[in-house]
C-alpha cells in the first residue's frame, strides 16, 4: 500500500530551484531515507509534504489526501520533527508534552496515560521537570520524538533528526524508529549520515533538488555504476594526482595510507587498469577490487549529473 505518492514535485525560491521534478513512491511501513548534502532540498521537500510550503508544481498524495488542498486533514495523521529544535525552551519536559497532547485533543486520563507511556518509553523520567532549553542534544531529540508521536500518527516526517546528537543516542534513536515501524508507522527521514541511510528500507539520494538514485541500500550498492578498487602504494599523494585526471576514474578518496578508487563500469579489468596506469608513472601499487559501500554509491550518483562540478 502507498503511503506517499509524489509526481513531478518542484519548488522555486526566486531563481533557485530547491526541488526539481521529484517523483516518490513510499510504501506503508517503511523507513524511507532522504540522503543528500546540505542545500539539496531535503527540508523543502519535507515541508511541502507537510503542507507547510506550497509546491510550485507537481502532485502530492499522502495517505489518500491531496496536498496542499487537504493539508489540514493530514496534520492529524502526521508527526513532524523539524530540523532544529522546535519545542518550547522555557517550558519543562512534561509541560511541552502536555501542550502537544492538548493540541492533538487528548484529555483527562487518556492524556496522562499517554504522556507517562512516552516518558517511560523515551527515558524522560529523570528530566521530566527540567526546562527543555537546558536539555542535551540527545534528550531534546527524544523529547521531540515523543511529542511527534503523541497522537500515534501513521506517518512520521523527520528532518535530520540526528544531526545534533552523539553516536550512541543516534543508535538508540534508530532502534526507536524500527519499533515504530513494527507498529505500522511509515517514516520518512532525512539524513547526511551514511550509516543511517544504510539502515533505511529504501533510499532516495538527492543532489541539487534532483533525485539521482532511489532503491534499497543493498540494490544501490549492488548496481553501482563503478568498480571499487582499493590501492596501496608508497606515494599516495602522487598516485591520487595521477588517477584523478583520468576520464575513467569517477572518484578517488584517501583512506589513511590507501586510496579508494571508483572506476567506470565500462573498464573491464579495473585492477589491472590502475596498476598499469600507475606503473607508467613510475609508481608501484597493489590494487584490489572490493565491494561498494553506500558512500561509493553516493559519490557516483552525485557526480553523474551533467551539470556536476564536484
Amino acid at each position: 500500500m502507498q503511503a506517499i505518492k509524489v509526481r513531478n514535485l518542484s519548488r522555486q525560491f526566486g531563481s533557485v530551484t530547491a526541488v526539481d521534478s521529484l517523483d516518490l513512491d513510499i510504501s506503508v511501513g517503511q523507513v524511507y531515507g532522504f540522503l543528500g548534502p546540505n542545500g539539496c532540498g531535503k527540508s523543502t521537500t519535507i515541508r511541502m509534504l507537510c503542507g507547510l510550503l506550497k509546491p510550485s508544481a507537481g502532485e502530492v498524495n499522502i495517505l489518500g489526501l491531496s496536498i496542499p488542498e487537504q493539508a489540514e486533514a493530514l496534520k492529524l495523521k502526521t508527526g513532524y520533527m523539524t530540523q532544529s529544535y522546535s519545542l518550547y525552551r522555557d517550558l519543562n519536559v512534561v509541560e511541552n508534552l502536555n501542550f502537544m497532547a492538548e493540541i492533538y485533543s487528548l484529555s483527562g486520563r487518556n492524556k496522562r496515560l499517554r504522556i507517562e507511556e512516552l516518558i517511560t518509553r523515551y527515558q524522560l523520567g529523570d528530566i521530566r521537570h527540567q526546562i527543555s532549553g537546558s536539555l542535551s542534544g540527545g534528550q531534546r531529540q527524544r523529547l521531540s520524538l515523543a511529542a511527534a508521536v503523541i497522537h500515534k500518527p501513521p506517518l512520521l516526517l523527520l528532518d535530520e533528526p540526528t544531526s545534533a546528537v552523539d553516536p550512541q543516542s543516534r543508535r538508540d534513536f534508530w532502534e526507536s524508529l524500527f519499533e515504530l515501524v513494527e507498529q505500522g508507522t511509515t517514516i520518512l527521514v532525512s539524513t547526511h549520515f551514511m550509516d543511517e541511510a544504510e539502515r533505511c528500507h529504501k533510499l532516495a539520494i538527492l543532489d541539487r533538488g534532483k533525485k539521482v538514485a532511489d532503491d534499497s541500500p543493498k540494490n544501490l550498492m549492488r548496481d553501482i555504476n563503478a568498480h571499487v578498487v582499493e590501492v596501496h602504494t608508497d606515494s599516495v599523494a602522487s598516485a591520487q594526482d595521477v588517477l584523478q585526471c583520468l576520464p575513467e576514474i569517477k572518484g578517488v578518496t584517501q583512506l589513511g595510507l590507501s586510496l579508494r578508487v571508483l572506476v567506470d563500469r565500462q573498464v573491464d579489468q579495473a585492477e589491472d587498469f590502475i596498476r598499469q596506469t600507475l606503473t607508467s608513472h613510475q609508481l608501484t601499487a597493489v590494487a584490489t577490487q572490493v565491494k561498494a559501500n553506500l558512500e561509493d554509491v553516493f559519490v557516483v550518483a552525485t557526480m553523474s549529473q551533467p551539470s556536476g562540478s564536484r
Binding site: C50, G51, L52, E72, K75, L76, T78, Y80, T82, S84, Y85, S86, L87, Y88, R89, M100, I103, Y104, S105
Partner: peptide
C-alpha cells in the same frame, strides 16, 4: 524566531 511556529503550524491548531 525560535522556530517553534513551524512545529505549531504543522499541528491541527
Amino acid at each position: 524566531e525560535h522556530g517553534t511556529l513551524e512545529l505549531l503550524i504543522a499541528t491541527p491548531v
